[in-house]
Structures are given as C-alpha cells and as structure tokens.
C-alpha cells in the first residue's frame, strides 16, 4: 500500500514537466526515504535523478519498496487536470497495474479521481560516484535558462569555462559566435539573485545545448541552479526543491579526440 499526499500539488506538476522533455517512460521508486526516479534519455547521453523526501509530504505511507513504470506524458495529462491550488494524493497497491491520483480543491468542494495505467519498464540503474568537483557555479535559474536559450539559437554546443574571473558560456555556429561571462555577484537584494563561483581548479568543458535547454524545463522548481563541473566528468545541473529534495541532470561532456 502506497499513499502520498501533497498539499502543494502544483509541485508534482512542475516535477513532471521538468523531466518529460528528456525522458518518455520512467520507473518511479518508492521507499521509506521518499519518492525517487533515475532515468536516462533515449540516446543515453543524459541522466535525470529525482528525489522527493518522505518528510516533505503531508502524508507519506509506503509499506514496502515499490517500483512503478509510468509514461511521463500520460502523467502530465492527468496532472494537468488538477487545479494549481489542489491537494494531490497519489495511491498505489502492490501488484496492481494502475495508480490513482486524487485532486482536492482547497475548499474541498471538488474532488476528482484519476486512474492511470502503469507500464513494464526495464530500468537500468547507474551508480553515481561521489565526486569532488573542480568548480561549482550557483546562479539564478532564469538567468541560466536565458543563456542556454540565447546560445541555442546560434550554436549546437556550449563551452562552459570557469576561471577566477567567473563563468563563461561560449558557442559558435554558421552565423557567428557568442560569449557570455557571468561574474560572481553576491551584492544583491535577494539571495536568489546571487551568482557564486566556487573554483578549486579552472575547468572548461563542451556540452550539447539541446540537452542543457531541456534541463532548463526545471526552472519553475527553483530560483537557483547549481552547475558542478570537473574535467571529463558529466556536468551536474541541480535544481533544489525546497524542503523536499532535488532534480539533478547529468550530462556527458563532448570529449576532444
């Protein structure tokens, strides 16, 4: 028996919208720790890891570990039927081939029930080793999204370079080239507007912009994004979900031959 209740139901919508551009079908795992997912994109170049900790839910019951294969577009279709202020309760039963979503309006005058079919998914789980990154950049998530969108209209790849000057995003395409430098800036009115650059060693890596632009679908989840870089390691683009957990995207760098 599985029962998860989330008063801030819109959060679940945002989570699904954050990852469905990258992954079509995924296996959600439920345990005492929380509701989690790990999935690769169809080209096996990027990986998404989601964690919603059990403490973050208003009610969390998970009698035993359970994996549920879901189609994210179908899940989005169901969640789109919930109002933005609705309370969402997600229910599953051992051995059942469906799960259910219940949406309650804040005033309790409308209650909707949706049942969604589960899918059989062969999920391969990857072990992600702890790494000490050469550079960690924290910046406003909207700023990062803007940079990826702007550079995506000029080139296919982005070179992210971190030096003591700050972080530089560069691209090159048929029409020309572009460089955007963001300097560390903590002198701001609100902490979420800050850009911080933590650098142990300078680092410069090349990534496909298509994936970076896909990661920015998670922007509504968090005001800040954390980009962790190390030579010849996948970059980690992390959006923290307040009080609950995170969505982390890993992207393999393009390596010079």
């Amino acid at each position: 028996m599985l029962e998860l209740r989330l008063v801030q139901g819109s959060l679940l919508k945002k989570v699904v919208d954050a990852i469905r551009d990258l992954v079509n079908d995924a296996s959600f795992d439920c345990s005492a720790t929380g509701f989690s997912l790990q999935a690769m994109d169809s080209s096996h170049v990027a990986l998404v890891a989601l964690l919603l900790r059990s403490e973050g839910f208003d009610h969390y019951r998970c009698d035993r570990n359970i994996s549920m294969g879901m189609n994210l577009n179908n899940m989005a279709k169901m969640l789109r039927c919930a109002g933005n202020d609705d309370i969402i309760t997600f229910k599953g039963d051992d051995g059942s081939d469906t799960v259910s979503f219940m949406f309650e309006s804040p005033t309790q005058d409308k209650i909707s029930d949706f049942e969604m079919k589960l899918m059989d998914i062969d999920s391969e789980r990857l072990g992600i080793p702890e790494a000490k990154y050469q550079a960690i950049v924290r910046m406003p998530s909207t700023e990062f999204a803007r940079i990826c969108k702007d550079l995506g209209s000029i080139g296919d790849t982005v070179v992210i370079s971190v030096t003591k000057e700050g972080v530089k995003f560069s691209t090159r395409g048929d029409i020309g080239s572009a460089n955007i430098v963001c300097r560390q800036n903590t002198d701001v009115d609100k902490p979420e507007q800050a850009t911080t650059v933590e650098m142990n060693d300078p680092v410069s890596l090349t990534f496909a912009l298509r994936y970076m632009n896909s990661f920015t679908k998670a922007t509504p989840l968090s005001n800040q994004v954390t980009i962790s870089l190390s030579s010849e390691l996948p970059v980690v683009v992390e959006y923290k979900i307040a009080e609950m957990g995170y969505v982390r995207f890993y992207l393999a760098p393009k390596i010079e031959e």
Partner: peptide, 14 residues
C-alpha cells in the same frame, strides 16, 4: 573534433 560518449561510460551499472 569532439565526440559524445554515452553517460554509462562515466558511471557504473549497479
């Protein structure tokens, strides 16, 4: 010339 490797090259299967 840059080449894109699958992410599995970087992480182990568990």
């Amino acid at each position: 010339q840059h080449r894109q490797f699958p992410i599995i090259i970087f992480f182990a299967m568990t």
